[in-house]
Write a protein that binds this DNA or RNA. Structure first.
Lengths: 212, 212
DNA sequence: AAGAAAATCACCAGTTCAGGTGATTGACTC
DNA sequence: GAGTCAATCACCTGAACTGGTGATTTTCTT
Protein backbone atom coordinates (compact mmCIF):
# COMPACT_ATOMS: atom_id res chain seq x y z
CA UNK A 1 0.00 0.00 0.00
CA UNK A 2 1.33 3.41 -0.95
CA UNK A 3 1.83 6.20 1.55
CA UNK A 4 -0.66 8.99 0.92
CA UNK A 5 0.87 12.40 1.33
CA UNK A 6 -0.83 15.82 1.49
CA UNK A 7 1.07 19.06 1.04
CA UNK A 8 0.38 22.46 2.58
CA UNK A 9 2.71 25.05 1.12
CA UNK A 10 1.92 28.57 -0.05
CA UNK A 11 4.74 28.82 -2.57
CA UNK A 12 3.30 27.43 -5.79
CA UNK A 13 6.60 26.43 -7.37
CA UNK A 14 7.76 24.59 -4.30
CA UNK A 15 4.36 22.98 -3.86
CA UNK A 16 4.38 21.62 -7.40
CA UNK A 17 7.93 20.36 -7.21
CA UNK A 18 7.20 18.59 -3.95
CA UNK A 19 4.14 17.02 -5.52
CA UNK A 20 6.23 15.78 -8.45
CA UNK A 21 8.92 14.49 -6.15
CA UNK A 22 6.43 12.49 -4.16
CA UNK A 23 4.50 11.15 -7.13
CA UNK A 24 7.72 9.99 -8.76
CA UNK A 25 8.98 8.31 -5.62
CA UNK A 26 8.51 4.63 -4.96
CA UNK A 27 5.75 3.71 -2.53
CA UNK A 28 4.10 7.09 -2.10
CA UNK A 29 1.53 9.26 -3.78
CA UNK A 30 0.41 12.85 -3.32
CA UNK A 31 -3.34 12.96 -2.69
CA UNK A 32 -3.61 16.70 -2.21
CA UNK A 33 -1.60 19.90 -2.47
CA UNK A 34 -2.95 23.08 -0.94
CA UNK A 35 -1.77 26.69 -0.83
CA UNK A 36 -3.10 27.42 2.64
CA UNK A 37 -4.54 25.75 5.71
CA UNK A 38 -7.78 27.67 5.77
CA UNK A 39 -10.21 24.88 4.99
CA UNK A 40 -7.92 22.27 6.41
CA UNK A 41 -10.50 19.93 7.89
CA UNK A 42 -12.33 19.50 4.63
CA UNK A 43 -9.14 19.29 2.63
CA UNK A 44 -7.78 16.58 4.87
CA UNK A 45 -11.01 14.64 4.56
CA UNK A 46 -10.67 14.87 0.79
CA UNK A 47 -7.01 13.90 0.64
CA UNK A 48 -7.16 11.32 3.44
CA UNK A 49 -3.38 11.37 3.84
CA UNK A 50 -1.14 9.24 6.03
CA UNK A 51 1.48 11.95 6.19
CA UNK A 52 1.10 15.73 5.91
CA UNK A 53 3.88 18.02 4.77
CA UNK A 54 3.18 21.31 6.48
CA UNK A 55 4.86 24.62 5.80
CA UNK A 56 5.20 26.60 9.01
CA UNK A 57 4.77 30.06 7.51
CA UNK A 58 1.60 30.46 5.54
CA UNK A 59 -0.89 33.27 5.03
CA UNK A 60 -4.09 32.80 6.99
CA UNK A 61 -4.06 29.84 9.34
CA UNK A 62 -0.42 29.27 10.33
CA UNK A 63 1.25 25.90 10.10
CA UNK A 64 1.37 25.65 13.87
CA UNK A 65 -2.36 26.25 14.24
CA UNK A 66 -2.97 23.75 11.48
CA UNK A 67 -0.98 21.13 13.38
CA UNK A 68 -3.05 21.73 16.47
CA UNK A 69 -6.28 21.33 14.54
CA UNK A 70 -5.05 18.23 12.74
CA UNK A 71 -3.77 16.52 15.85
CA UNK A 72 -7.08 17.11 17.53
CA UNK A 73 -9.33 15.95 14.70
CA UNK A 74 -7.12 13.42 12.92
CA UNK A 75 -4.65 12.19 15.51
CA UNK A 76 -3.52 9.26 13.35
CA UNK A 77 -2.14 11.59 10.66
CA UNK A 78 1.61 12.12 11.00
CA UNK A 79 2.89 15.61 10.36
CA UNK A 80 6.24 16.64 8.96
CA UNK A 81 6.98 20.33 9.34
CA UNK A 82 8.87 22.30 6.73
CA UNK A 83 10.46 25.66 7.17
CA UNK A 84 13.14 27.94 5.84
CA UNK A 85 14.36 29.26 9.18
CA UNK A 86 15.39 27.51 12.34
CA UNK A 87 13.56 29.64 14.88
CA UNK A 88 13.64 28.21 18.36
CA UNK A 89 10.15 29.20 19.31
CA UNK A 90 8.64 27.89 16.09
CA UNK A 91 10.37 24.56 16.50
CA UNK A 92 9.27 24.43 20.08
CA UNK A 93 5.66 25.28 19.26
CA UNK A 94 5.48 22.81 16.38
CA UNK A 95 6.78 19.93 18.46
CA UNK A 96 4.54 20.71 21.39
CA UNK A 97 1.55 20.93 19.06
CA UNK A 98 2.25 17.42 17.88
CA UNK A 99 4.42 17.55 14.77
CA UNK A 100 6.41 14.35 14.25
CA UNK A 101 9.34 15.73 12.32
CA UNK A 102 10.95 18.97 11.37
CA UNK A 103 12.91 19.47 8.15
CA UNK A 104 14.48 22.53 6.60
CA UNK A 105 13.35 23.27 3.05
CA UNK A 106 16.89 23.17 1.80
CA UNK A 107 16.89 19.43 2.49
CA UNK A 108 17.67 17.42 -0.65
CA UNK A 109 14.95 15.43 -2.41
CA UNK A 110 16.38 12.04 -1.46
CA UNK A 111 16.50 13.00 2.23
CA UNK A 112 13.00 14.39 1.95
CA UNK A 113 11.62 11.10 0.66
CA UNK A 114 13.45 9.26 3.42
CA UNK A 115 11.99 11.63 6.00
CA UNK A 116 8.47 11.00 4.73
CA UNK A 117 8.98 7.26 4.99
CA UNK A 118 10.40 7.65 8.46
CA UNK A 119 7.48 9.84 9.51
CA UNK A 120 5.02 7.27 8.21
CA UNK A 121 6.77 4.56 10.21
CA UNK A 122 6.34 6.57 13.40
CA UNK A 123 9.82 8.06 13.41
CA UNK A 124 10.87 11.62 14.10
CA UNK A 125 13.10 12.82 11.30
CA UNK A 126 14.84 16.07 12.00
CA UNK A 127 17.35 18.12 10.12
CA UNK A 128 20.64 17.92 12.03
CA UNK A 129 20.57 21.55 13.13
CA UNK A 130 17.04 21.16 14.41
CA UNK A 131 17.93 18.05 16.37
CA UNK A 132 20.74 19.95 18.01
CA UNK A 133 18.39 22.76 18.98
CA UNK A 134 15.91 20.32 20.43
CA UNK A 135 18.56 18.75 22.62
CA UNK A 136 19.73 22.17 23.72
CA UNK A 137 16.23 23.18 24.70
CA UNK A 138 15.88 19.89 26.47
CA UNK A 139 18.95 20.54 28.55
CA UNK A 140 17.83 24.04 29.41
CA UNK A 141 14.44 22.96 30.59
CA UNK A 142 15.23 20.30 33.08
CA UNK A 143 18.42 20.62 35.02
CA UNK A 144 17.60 24.03 36.45
CA UNK A 145 17.09 22.95 40.01
CA UNK A 146 19.78 21.85 42.37
CA UNK A 147 17.67 20.48 45.17
CA UNK A 148 19.05 22.25 48.18
CA UNK A 149 17.69 19.50 50.34
CA UNK A 150 15.03 21.23 52.36
CA UNK A 151 13.68 18.89 54.94
CA UNK A 152 10.12 20.03 55.53
CA UNK A 153 7.76 18.00 57.68
CA UNK A 154 4.56 16.64 56.16
CA UNK A 155 2.53 19.32 57.82
CA UNK A 156 4.85 22.02 56.62
CA UNK A 157 4.69 20.77 53.05
CA UNK A 158 0.93 20.73 53.26
CA UNK A 159 0.82 24.30 54.46
CA UNK A 160 3.39 25.43 51.92
CA UNK A 161 1.25 23.95 49.17
CA UNK A 162 -1.73 25.96 50.37
CA UNK A 163 0.39 29.10 50.52
CA UNK A 164 1.38 28.51 46.90
CA UNK A 165 -2.29 28.32 46.02
CA UNK A 166 -2.61 31.83 47.39
CA UNK A 167 -4.52 31.00 50.55
CA UNK A 168 -4.42 33.29 53.55
CA UNK A 169 -3.44 32.09 57.02
CA UNK A 170 -7.07 32.18 57.98
CA UNK A 171 -8.11 30.01 55.05
CA UNK A 172 -5.30 27.57 55.77
CA UNK A 173 -6.30 27.40 59.42
CA UNK A 174 -9.83 26.45 58.47
CA UNK A 175 -8.69 24.03 55.75
CA UNK A 176 -6.40 22.21 58.16
CA UNK A 177 -8.67 22.52 61.17
CA UNK A 178 -6.00 24.27 63.20
CA UNK A 179 -5.81 27.74 64.65
CA UNK A 180 -4.40 30.69 62.82
CA UNK A 181 -1.61 30.94 65.35
CA UNK A 182 -0.51 27.42 64.60
CA UNK A 183 -0.44 28.27 60.92
CA UNK A 184 1.69 31.24 61.74
CA UNK A 185 4.13 29.05 63.67
CA UNK A 186 4.39 26.52 60.87
CA UNK A 187 4.97 29.25 58.36
CA UNK A 188 7.76 30.62 60.51
CA UNK A 189 9.42 27.21 60.56
CA UNK A 190 9.03 26.96 56.81
CA UNK A 191 10.68 30.35 56.37
CA UNK A 192 13.59 29.28 58.56
CA UNK A 193 14.13 26.09 56.60
CA UNK A 194 13.86 27.81 53.23
CA UNK A 195 15.84 30.78 54.54
CA UNK A 196 13.30 33.31 53.28
CA UNK A 197 11.40 36.12 54.95
CA UNK A 198 8.12 36.50 53.14
CA UNK A 199 5.25 34.57 51.69
CA UNK A 200 6.11 35.44 48.14
CA UNK A 201 9.73 34.35 48.47
CA UNK A 202 8.58 31.09 49.96
CA UNK A 203 6.11 30.57 47.12
CA UNK A 204 8.71 31.35 44.49
CA UNK A 205 11.22 28.97 46.05
CA UNK A 206 8.62 26.25 46.46
CA UNK A 207 7.69 26.38 42.79
CA UNK A 208 11.18 26.75 41.43
CA UNK A 209 12.52 23.88 43.47
CA UNK A 210 9.43 21.80 42.91
CA UNK A 211 8.85 21.40 46.65
CA UNK A 212 5.15 21.17 46.01
CA UNK B 1 42.28 15.97 8.54
CA UNK B 2 40.87 12.71 9.75
CA UNK B 3 38.33 12.48 12.54
CA UNK B 4 39.87 10.88 15.60
CA UNK B 5 37.49 8.49 17.32
CA UNK B 6 37.81 6.81 20.72
CA UNK B 7 35.69 3.84 21.73
CA UNK B 8 34.44 2.88 25.18
CA UNK B 9 32.73 -0.48 25.05
CA UNK B 10 33.01 -3.40 27.44
CA UNK B 11 32.14 -6.11 24.93
CA UNK B 12 35.44 -7.09 23.34
CA UNK B 13 34.01 -8.43 20.09
CA UNK B 14 31.90 -5.36 19.49
CA UNK B 15 34.76 -3.08 20.46
CA UNK B 16 37.08 -4.67 17.94
CA UNK B 17 34.54 -4.66 15.16
CA UNK B 18 33.79 -0.99 15.78
CA UNK B 19 37.48 -0.25 15.68
CA UNK B 20 37.82 -2.06 12.36
CA UNK B 21 34.78 -0.33 10.97
CA UNK B 22 36.17 3.09 11.84
CA UNK B 23 39.71 2.39 10.67
CA UNK B 24 38.38 1.15 7.35
CA UNK B 25 36.13 4.14 6.85
CA UNK B 26 37.14 7.17 4.83
CA UNK B 27 38.21 10.20 6.79
CA UNK B 28 38.33 8.71 10.26
CA UNK B 29 40.67 6.78 12.47
CA UNK B 30 40.33 5.06 15.83
CA UNK B 31 42.89 6.43 18.27
CA UNK B 32 41.81 4.39 21.26
CA UNK B 33 39.50 1.55 22.26
CA UNK B 34 38.84 0.89 25.93
CA UNK B 35 36.86 -1.73 27.82
CA UNK B 36 35.79 0.57 30.63
CA UNK B 37 35.67 4.22 31.63
CA UNK B 38 37.65 3.87 34.81
CA UNK B 39 40.76 5.82 33.89
CA UNK B 40 38.90 7.92 31.41
CA UNK B 41 40.74 11.21 31.84
CA UNK B 42 44.11 9.67 31.12
CA UNK B 43 42.77 7.55 28.31
CA UNK B 44 41.19 10.56 26.65
CA UNK B 45 44.43 12.48 26.94
CA UNK B 46 46.21 9.59 25.24
CA UNK B 47 43.67 9.14 22.46
CA UNK B 48 42.96 12.87 21.99
CA UNK B 49 39.73 12.10 20.09
CA UNK B 50 37.32 14.44 18.32
CA UNK B 51 34.45 12.05 18.82
CA UNK B 52 33.87 9.47 21.55
CA UNK B 53 31.68 6.41 21.10
CA UNK B 54 30.39 5.63 24.56
CA UNK B 55 28.55 2.53 25.64
CA UNK B 56 25.95 3.39 28.25
CA UNK B 57 26.17 0.18 30.24
CA UNK B 58 29.65 -0.61 31.43
CA UNK B 59 31.09 -2.17 34.55
CA UNK B 60 32.66 0.38 36.89
CA UNK B 61 32.15 3.98 35.82
CA UNK B 62 28.90 4.09 33.85
CA UNK B 63 28.64 5.69 30.45
CA UNK B 64 26.53 8.50 31.89
CA UNK B 65 29.08 9.35 34.54
CA UNK B 66 31.79 9.22 31.93
CA UNK B 67 29.88 11.74 29.82
CA UNK B 68 29.63 14.10 32.75
CA UNK B 69 33.34 13.85 33.42
CA UNK B 70 34.23 14.29 29.76
CA UNK B 71 31.96 17.27 29.22
CA UNK B 72 33.47 18.96 32.23
CA UNK B 73 37.12 18.32 31.43
CA UNK B 74 37.07 18.14 27.62
CA UNK B 75 34.01 20.11 26.53
CA UNK B 76 35.13 20.21 22.90
CA UNK B 77 34.90 16.42 22.57
CA UNK B 78 31.62 15.30 21.00
CA UNK B 79 30.01 12.21 22.46
CA UNK B 80 27.88 9.65 20.68
CA UNK B 81 26.09 7.28 23.03
CA UNK B 82 25.52 3.66 22.18
CA UNK B 83 23.13 1.32 23.85
CA UNK B 84 21.13 -1.83 23.37
CA UNK B 85 17.96 -0.69 25.09
CA UNK B 86 15.86 2.42 24.70
CA UNK B 87 15.31 3.29 28.31
CA UNK B 88 13.69 6.67 28.82
CA UNK B 89 15.63 7.62 31.89
CA UNK B 90 18.98 6.62 30.40
CA UNK B 91 18.29 8.63 27.27
CA UNK B 92 17.21 11.53 29.40
CA UNK B 93 20.27 11.36 31.64
CA UNK B 94 22.68 11.02 28.73
CA UNK B 95 21.27 14.03 26.91
CA UNK B 96 21.21 16.18 30.01
CA UNK B 97 24.79 15.19 30.78
CA UNK B 98 25.85 16.49 27.41
CA UNK B 99 25.83 13.63 24.92
CA UNK B 100 25.42 14.84 21.34
CA UNK B 101 23.83 11.78 19.79
CA UNK B 102 22.21 8.55 20.75
CA UNK B 103 22.34 5.43 18.57
CA UNK B 104 21.15 1.90 19.16
CA UNK B 105 23.79 -0.79 18.72
CA UNK B 106 21.73 -2.56 16.12
CA UNK B 107 22.37 0.40 13.80
CA UNK B 108 24.02 -0.69 10.57
CA UNK B 109 27.71 0.08 9.91
CA UNK B 110 26.97 2.61 7.16
CA UNK B 111 24.58 4.55 9.41
CA UNK B 112 27.10 4.37 12.22
CA UNK B 113 29.80 6.02 10.11
CA UNK B 114 27.32 8.68 9.04
CA UNK B 115 26.39 9.31 12.63
CA UNK B 116 30.04 9.78 13.61
CA UNK B 117 30.50 12.29 10.81
CA UNK B 118 27.36 14.10 11.84
CA UNK B 119 28.46 14.18 15.47
CA UNK B 120 31.82 15.61 14.46
CA UNK B 121 30.08 18.34 12.49
CA UNK B 122 28.08 19.36 15.56
CA UNK B 123 24.94 17.48 14.66
CA UNK B 124 22.76 15.33 16.89
CA UNK B 125 22.25 11.96 15.22
CA UNK B 126 19.60 9.86 16.85
CA UNK B 127 18.12 6.51 16.04
CA UNK B 128 14.53 7.08 14.93
CA UNK B 129 13.00 5.47 17.99
CA UNK B 130 15.16 7.58 20.27
CA UNK B 131 14.21 10.78 18.47
CA UNK B 132 10.56 9.91 18.97
CA UNK B 133 11.12 9.38 22.68
CA UNK B 134 12.92 12.67 22.99
CA UNK B 135 10.04 14.53 21.38
CA UNK B 136 7.59 12.73 23.63
CA UNK B 137 9.52 13.72 26.72
CA UNK B 138 9.70 17.22 25.37
CA UNK B 139 5.95 17.44 25.03
CA UNK B 140 5.39 16.08 28.50
CA UNK B 141 7.68 18.59 30.11
CA UNK B 142 6.41 21.84 28.78
CA UNK B 143 2.87 22.16 27.57
CA UNK B 144 1.25 22.12 31.00
CA UNK B 145 0.23 25.76 30.84
CA UNK B 146 -1.99 27.43 28.33
CA UNK B 147 -0.76 30.98 28.24
CA UNK B 148 -3.87 32.95 29.06
CA UNK B 149 -2.45 35.97 27.33
CA UNK B 150 -2.12 38.50 30.08
CA UNK B 151 -1.30 41.89 28.72
CA UNK B 152 0.83 43.54 31.38
CA UNK B 153 2.54 46.86 30.73
CA UNK B 154 6.33 47.05 30.90
CA UNK B 155 6.20 48.68 34.28
CA UNK B 156 3.82 46.06 35.58
CA UNK B 157 6.04 43.24 34.38
CA UNK B 158 9.00 44.88 36.05
CA UNK B 159 7.16 45.14 39.34
CA UNK B 160 5.80 41.62 39.06
CA UNK B 161 9.34 40.34 38.59
CA UNK B 162 10.41 42.08 41.77
CA UNK B 163 7.43 40.65 43.63
CA UNK B 164 8.48 37.19 42.51
CA UNK B 165 11.91 37.85 43.95
CA UNK B 166 10.18 38.37 47.27
CA UNK B 167 10.64 42.12 47.55
CA UNK B 168 8.30 44.20 49.68
CA UNK B 169 6.41 47.18 48.31
CA UNK B 170 8.90 49.41 50.07
CA UNK B 171 11.88 47.71 48.46
CA UNK B 172 10.23 47.85 45.04
CA UNK B 173 9.49 51.54 45.50
CA UNK B 174 13.12 52.28 46.20
CA UNK B 175 14.35 49.98 43.41
CA UNK B 176 12.11 51.69 40.86
CA UNK B 177 12.48 55.19 42.29
CA UNK B 178 8.73 55.53 42.74
CA UNK B 179 6.60 55.94 45.82
CA UNK B 180 5.16 53.05 47.74
CA UNK B 181 1.67 54.18 46.85
CA UNK B 182 2.47 53.94 43.18
CA UNK B 183 3.74 50.44 43.71
CA UNK B 184 0.52 49.62 45.45
CA UNK B 185 -1.49 50.93 42.52
CA UNK B 186 0.54 48.95 40.00
CA UNK B 187 0.17 45.83 42.06
CA UNK B 188 -3.55 46.35 42.15
CA UNK B 189 -3.63 46.55 38.37
CA UNK B 190 -1.53 43.42 38.12
CA UNK B 191 -3.95 41.59 40.37
CA UNK B 192 -6.87 42.66 38.22
CA UNK B 193 -5.19 41.47 35.05
CA UNK B 194 -4.11 38.17 36.56
CA UNK B 195 -7.43 37.86 38.37
CA UNK B 196 -5.79 37.11 41.70
CA UNK B 197 -6.12 38.65 45.13
CA UNK B 198 -2.81 38.23 46.88
CA UNK B 199 0.90 38.51 46.41
CA UNK B 200 1.46 34.80 46.64
CA UNK B 201 -1.19 33.97 44.05
CA UNK B 202 0.34 36.52 41.72
CA UNK B 203 3.81 35.06 42.25
CA UNK B 204 2.59 31.51 41.66
CA UNK B 205 0.79 32.52 38.48
CA UNK B 206 3.74 34.53 37.24
CA UNK B 207 6.10 31.61 37.62
CA UNK B 208 3.76 28.94 36.32
CA UNK B 209 2.84 30.94 33.25
CA UNK B 210 6.39 32.12 32.72
CA UNK B 211 5.34 35.77 32.81
CA UNK B 212 8.71 36.67 34.24
C1' DA C 1 12.75 6.36 80.35
C1' DA C 2 14.93 10.44 78.61
C1' DG C 3 15.28 13.38 74.63
C1' DA C 4 14.08 15.18 70.19
C1' DA C 5 10.98 16.61 66.92
C1' DA C 6 6.36 17.66 65.19
C1' DA C 7 2.09 19.65 65.94
C1' DT C 8 -0.64 22.29 68.49
C1' DC C 9 -2.18 26.77 70.89
C1' DA C 10 -1.72 31.66 72.81
C1' DC C 11 -0.40 36.64 73.21
C1' DC C 12 1.64 40.61 71.26
C1' DA C 13 3.91 44.56 68.68
C1' DG C 14 5.05 46.43 64.59
C1' DT C 15 4.91 46.14 59.59
C1' DT C 16 2.91 45.15 55.32
C1' DC C 17 -0.75 44.47 52.29
C1' DA C 18 -5.50 44.85 49.82
C1' DG C 19 -8.57 47.59 48.02
C1' DG C 20 -11.27 51.90 47.85
C1' DT C 21 -11.31 56.91 46.38
C1' DG C 22 -9.44 60.64 43.94
C1' DA C 23 -6.01 63.35 41.08
C1' DT C 24 -2.17 64.85 37.74
C1' DT C 25 0.80 64.31 33.80
C1' DG C 26 2.23 62.85 29.22
C1' DA C 27 1.64 59.95 25.21
C1' DC C 28 -1.15 58.11 21.82
C1' DT C 29 -5.59 57.59 19.14
C1' DC C 30 -9.63 58.86 16.71
C1' DG D 1 -9.59 68.55 20.68
C1' DA D 2 -11.77 64.79 23.34
C1' DG D 3 -10.92 60.36 25.03
C1' DT D 4 -8.13 56.61 26.62
C1' DC D 5 -4.37 54.64 29.01
C1' DA D 6 0.10 54.17 31.50
C1' DA D 7 2.45 56.03 35.15
C1' DT D 8 2.64 58.67 38.92
C1' DC D 9 1.21 60.27 43.76
C1' DA D 10 -1.82 60.64 48.08
C1' DC D 11 -4.88 59.22 51.97
C1' DC D 12 -7.34 55.78 54.44
C1' DT D 13 -9.14 51.43 56.83
C1' DG D 14 -9.23 46.91 58.11
C1' DA D 15 -7.10 42.71 57.35
C1' DA D 16 -3.05 39.97 56.97
C1' DC D 17 1.57 39.00 57.87
C1' DT D 18 6.30 38.70 60.50
C1' DG D 19 8.62 37.42 64.20
C1' DG D 20 9.31 37.20 69.20
C1' DT D 21 7.99 34.75 73.59
C1' DG D 22 6.32 30.65 75.96
C1' DA D 23 3.71 26.19 76.57
C1' DT D 24 1.35 21.43 75.95
C1' DT D 25 0.70 16.95 73.77
C1' DT D 26 1.90 13.15 70.91
C1' DT D 27 5.06 10.41 68.60
C1' DC D 28 9.30 8.57 67.52
C1' DT D 29 14.14 7.50 68.53
C1' DT D 30 17.71 5.96 71.39
Amino acid sequence: MEIKVAIFEDNKILRQSLQQLIDNAEGMVCTGAFGDANRIVRNIQLAAPDVVLMDINMPGTSGIEAVQILKEKFPQVQILMQTVFEENDKIFAAICSGASGYMLKKTGPQKMIEAIHETYQGGAPMTASVAVKVLQMFRLQSPAQKHEFVDLSEREKEILALLVKGKSYKAIASDCFISIDTVSTHVRHIYEKLRVHSKSEAVAKAINQKLV
